[in-house]
Structures are given as structure tokens and as C-alpha cells.
Design a protein around this nucleic acid. Sequence first.
DNA 1: TTCTGTGAATTTATTCACAGCA
DNA 2: TGCTGTGAATAAATTCACAGAA
Lengths: 209, 209
Amino acid sequence: MGPKMKIPVTTVNRLSLYLRVFSQIEKAGNDTISSKELAEVSGINSAQVRKDLAYFGQFGRRGVGYPVAELKKQIRGILGLDRDWNAAIFGAGRLGQALMMYPGFGAYSFHMVAAFDSDPDKISWELEGIRIYDLADLKRQAKDLKIEIAILAVPAAVAQDVANRIVAAKIPAILNFAPAHLNVPAGTMLRNVDFASELEALTYFLQKT
Amino acid sequence: MGPKMKIPVTTVNRLSLYLRVFSQIEKAGNDTISSKELAEVSGINSAQVRKDLAYFGQFGRRGVGYPVAELKKQIRGILGLDRDWNAAIFGAGRLGQALMMYPGFGAYSFHMVAAFDSDPDKISWELEGIRIYDLADLKRQAKDLKIEIAILAVPAAVAQDVANRIVAAKIPAILNFAPAHLNVPAGTMLRNVDFASELEALTYFLQKT
DNA sequence: TTCTGTGAATTTATTCACAGCA
DNA sequence: TGCTGTGAATAAATTCACAGAA
């Protein structure tokens, strides 16, 4: 399968699901896993699993399955997790602070290099070894600290404005936690983590019971 | 369009997006909005917007557009946000505590009635007026407090176990914040909020720049 | 005219089903 | 035999394109 082939976004999302599943079943000790087994624990069709993996190479062996350790390493490589990424938190309010302390980030391949806020009472503080900078200094710090990912945890009302500054500072990716819809130019990567939206989908389906 | 028609999940997700967009543009003052305008700010095709809304009724007027206030009310009703939902947090660690304090929940239609943990140092505490109960008491409290939504913020390693207890306590919906893949029976609604997974998708696309 | 509501066409994603390798 | 890798079939979601109401 050629390296130029276009990969569906849904496939990329499932690759991280497979990583989760691996860390959950790894103890089980088998050093290979079949697409059928991986599919069952993931709640996905087995042909889908094979197709997802086949986009990136021939990792499996017919009659045997996939070597777990090797496959895990491959997926991490595909997702770009074989190196560290510099991230910064925007908004040092409650959510931002909780995210600064969240052990999950460090545990994966993310290095939290800074936080930004515009509240003078917060600026220059440090939390979990992460310094809080003035948002007004963003352009300089983004360059000096080589920030690659912006984690946006500001109130919805100012989210678009802060996003604009992030774009202007040439940070190429934003993970948005604010319950707001952001418009960013094509060159900027954007993903949303919207609790409220997920809850709203839950209540829609709950209603129909 | 008949009420028996099956609604795509993607449509339900977009309905909450439209609500976000409304609260962002409401100040602009116009009392109607066209599918084209709504599509533009939402980053969606205008036929998609019309189709999404048409699943639930004929809310628009040809040549005019959709009445904003009315449409907003309709969407809230469709999503089940015209009444309150009792939710409880599972896991009173850092993430759980941050979620307990998160103003967003109350602001929408969610009422946080309890938290659960199994750490004796945390049990019986209260945070933001939310009492922390012993996880062992879940079955009784779930019934007494009429918990309808479980917000899971425990470590990944115990997430499946706590999810099993939630299912056993007959709570019909789970919003999972743990970076773990959960298996739940068909009668239980499950949605995942996985920061790490979103970051991993970002790095995949960042790599290719 | 403008803009909705919606069938038809298209694109994208998932699942089937099987040839071929270990 | 057991399982991958992958074309072909199917299903689902999106977009086009236009008839018809205001």
C-alpha cells in the first residue's frame, strides 16, 4: 500500500483506541494478537482492524496474527508518539490548572512547557513546575519555547480571540476545551474536547428510553 | 418527516454545535438566520444544516430563514435540555475535583448530585456543595438520588471495574474521561472524552507538515 | 427573488468474502 | 487450518440541485 494513500480520519482515531486496548490487555501475556481478538475488545469489526493497519504496512502474519510489542511500537510511530511534543496551556483557571496537573500528558509524549493567562494575579506563578506567562508575551515565548500545541482552556467568550493570537504566534495545533466553536485558517490543526456537547448527545439518546 | 425516522449520530452531534454557534452570534441581533449563514459560522455545508433541522420538523420559512430564538428552543427540546438531568462524578481525584467545580455543567441542564470515591480520606467530604460518598454505597445512592448520568474520572486501571458497578447500579449513561476503552452492555449509553486520544490525532496530522 | 425542504447523486466509511501465505 | 490483506459490495453521510413557498 503506497505511502501517498489518503488515510481516513476515523482510522487515525481508532489507532489510539488500539493503543489503549493494548495497555489494557498487555498483561494477558500473549505476544501476538489476531484482528478478531483486537476487534472484539475494541468493539470494532475485524476487517476494519485489518484495513486500518494495512494502510501503514504489512504488520501481521497470516495464520498467526500481529506481534503485539512490534505493532504497538509501529502505531506509536505512525501517530508521531515516538518523540516529544511541546505543549502549552492557555487559561490558568480551574480547568487549566487541573490540566496542568494532569499526569496523563507527561505519561504520553507531551511536554508541558508553559501556561498563559492575562490575569496579573496569576502571571509569573508556577504550578507543577510550569510557569504562567503573560498572554501578551505569547509571540516571543511561542518561538523561544518552541510551542507546537496549544491547549485552550479559557472561557468560551474569549476563546476565539485567544485562538486568533495562537494562530498569529504560528502555533500549528489547538486542542480546544472551551465550549465554543472556533474558526481557524486551514493551516492550523484544530480538535475539540467538548464535555457539554458529549453530555448533550447522551441526553438525546437517554430521552428515547 | 415522520417521527419514526432514524437520526444519524452525526446530526445529533451537530445540533449541540448549532447551540454553541447561537450563543456566540446571538448578540448580533438578527432574529432570523439562514442555513447559509449558520453553515458558514459552523464550518458545515448549508444543505447539511437544512437536512439536520428538517429531521425534526419544518422550522424555517422559505425566503426568510430560521427564527433564532424559536430554533434554539426547539434544538434544546430535541436534545432533552428542557429539563434537568441528575449526574454524579466518579473519582474525586484532581480531574474529578476539577469537574465538580466546573461551572459549565450547572449552566447547561446538568445537576451534580453526588461524587463517589473509595478513598476513606475523601469520603464524606463536600466540595462545592457536592457530597463525596463511598463507592460501596453506590447502589443505594444511585436509587435515592436518582442518578441518571455517571461521569467517570477514575484512573484508567480501575475504569472498567467502576463502569461495571455503575451498570449494576442501573445508571443508564456514562461519560468516560478515563483514557481507557470500556465495554458496557447494549442498554447503557457510553460516550468518551479522551484528551490523550485527541492529542494523538493532532500529532499524527502535525507530523505530516 | 430568496431561501427552505428534499429527492437524487456522490463521496466516504464499513463490512463482506475470499485468495493466498504460514 | 488459521489468519492476513484486499478487492467488491454495502451502508452511511454528505453534497448537489431544484421544485415550491413566502
